[in-house]
């Protein structure tokens, strides 16, 4: 046990130098991605997710057509190199299916699907790298991608993972921490304070649950701020670009170019 990493040391620091309620570094890139109607590259710590959104567009399959609202279709793809252990996950993998199902059920009540009867919205989630908080990163990225696609939402959905070490609540866990402490993911709609998702993968004492849950909801508001700023920045950049006569969303730097070429796969 001597070499094991301490989850929370006597000084109140976690193994990566954060304190209990500090979230990891967040980077958001909303530049346009291939043919997608909306996209978001979302990085939280070392977890990196790219979400692209297509639609609303006409439903391709009869069977998936719903007469009074849009159908939401979520597909998840986890890159083989996303964890240290190279493992190929097939599309039917249980974890992938669960992740997709959780994203779908989170967004179904949030997207104003009734505006688009008989159409479909495709959400592609590409996991590029993972180090804990995968579901929450995927949800945040999806929110951002949907907004950039111009799909009307009732509210943002902001998700965060949290856990309890002994009796101490902690936010935004790394893989190392997830392996050790009971944890949950909470997705909130910050304007109304409504919860659209709670998942609990391990048993948790009910008293603790309340505390962790409350803190996760608070953290949702902080994330909201961060996400809104990113959207605002993009909007003003767009406005500036239009004013300067560039086509909307046109890449203005080299990274953007690369994105563009990688887009169709």
């Amino acid at each position: 046990m001597g070499s094991r990493v301490e989850i929370l040391n006597d000084g109140g620091y976690r193994s990566d130098g954060r304190r209990q309620f500090e979230l990891r570094d967040i980077a958001i890139d909303l530049s346009r991605h291939g043919q997608a109607d909306g996209s978001a590259m979302y990085t939280q710590g070392l977890t990196e997710v790219l979400v692209t959104v297509f639609g609303p567009r006409e439903a391709k399959l009869r069977s998936q057509t719903i007469h009074n609202r849009a159908n939401i279709n979520v597909e998840v793809n986890i890159a083989a190199f996303s964890t240290g252990e190279r493992r190929k996950r097939s599309r039917g993998d249980k974890r992938i299916l669960e992740l997709g199902a959780a994203i779908k059920s989170t967004f179904e009540p949030v997207i104003q699907t009734h505006l688009y009867p008989r159409s479909q919205i495709d959400i592609f989630v590409q996991v590029l790298q993972q180090d804990g908080g995968l579901l929450s990163a995927a949800i945040n990225a999806t929110t951002l991608a949907l907004i950039t696609a111009g799909i009307p939402l009732f509210d943002y959905v902001c998700a965060v993972s949290s856990g309890v070490h002994s009796t101490h609540a902690m936010l935004d866990l790394t893989t190392l921490e997830e392996n050790d402490v009971p944890h949950l993911t909470v997705a909130v709609m910050p304007r109304t304070g409504k919860i659209t998702l709670v998942t609990l993968e391990t048993r948790l004492h009910s008293d603790r649950f309340e505390e962790v849950f409350r803190i996760a909801c608070e953290a949702g508001k902080v994330l909201h701020e961060e996400m809104r700023n990113a959207i605002k920045a993009r909007t003003s950049a767009l406005a500036r670009a239009m004013g300067e006569g560039h086509p909307a969303g046109a890449p203005s730097n080299r990274e953007g170019d690369e994105d563009f070429e990688m887009g169709d796969d």
Binding site: G17, G45, L46, G84
Partner: peptide, 23 residues
């Protein structure tokens, strides 16, 4: 960032990437 290699219980060698937040 800290990158290192670790052997799993099953004997596989995996790459581990960890962050450190300096304050």
């Amino acid at each position: 960032q800290r990158k290192f290699f670790k052997k799993t219980a099953r004997g596989k060698v995996v790459k581990v990437l960890r962050e450190r937040y300096l304050r």
